[in-house]
Amino acid sequence: MSTPLLSVSNLSTSFFTSRGEVKAVRGVSFELRAGEILGIVGESGSGKSITCMSLMGLLRSSGRVIDGSALFEGRDLLTLDEDELSALRGNDISMIFQDPMTSLNPTLTVGEQVIETILRHRKVTRAAARARAIELFELVRIPSAAKRLRSYPHEFSGGMRQRVMIAIALACDPKLLIADEPTTALDVTIQRQILALLKELQGRLGMAVILITHDLGVIAETADRVLVMYGGMVMEEGPVRELFARPSHPYTRGLLASIPDLRDDTHHRLTPIPGSPPDMLRPPKGCPFAPRCAHAMAQCNAALPPLYDAGPVHRARCWLHHPQAPRVAGITAELVPA
């Protein structure tokens, strides 16, 4: 097995607020191979963004990584100092955010915002950086690229701004691109264009991608592997086909069940499972999903379930996978007892 590009283990991040410690991420582990697209899905507040921000060293001041490691090409991202990290950001690892309307600086031309990234990481002249910026704009299909470099963000539509963000992210040929809900704020038709563009560029440039989304439909179309997060933890993990064919966690099943038909493009949004996610100030000591889970057992409230194998490359964090647990159709029925 080749060594993965990124190997995260037991990542835990908390926010220390006036109300107490918010345990936003609790022991997340995953691996990412070069050129792979990993989807992370989960309801709002499940810790998807904070997981990625922790890797990038971009937590706001009250947030701290309290445990874990994240090996990227043999270096632990979590122990790098600010200088080393900033040399990596936008260069080897870059990031796209959810809202293109607010993630570009309104008082600088978009060209400048691309060029400054190139100049930060490459020893090239300004003219060369400009040429590269034009090339990038053409790559992300912004029409009349050379002219548009001089425009300000407010002169672009949301979709075009997201293309600018992608151009910035790709400026230095990153090995890993983190896209945090890159299409959530966009119109449906624009969403598809941006996703298609991302997927195409990924194929062309061969970088690895972490794609965060609420939308299982997006995952199904784009990702190779999926991480389902809930309450700051990985609830289920596996290849897309496998996970969609045999969801092995009640939460994942809930997510899937809330989509009427995967082939019907209009309703990819999650309709929420009844109840709300746990308060991360006081996370339950057992399974975080227990208050909302139809299968919850006494054991679920008593202790946190470990990650069980649900297949060769498929894992799920649910007591139902314990050998002594009652079998539940659809989740553990097909499971061969250990």
Partner: peptide, 9 residues
């Protein structure tokens, strides 16, 4: 956040 994520000093 974008500016930081770009690796700017």
């Amino acid at each position: 956040m974008t500016a930081k994520a770009k690796g700017l000093k």
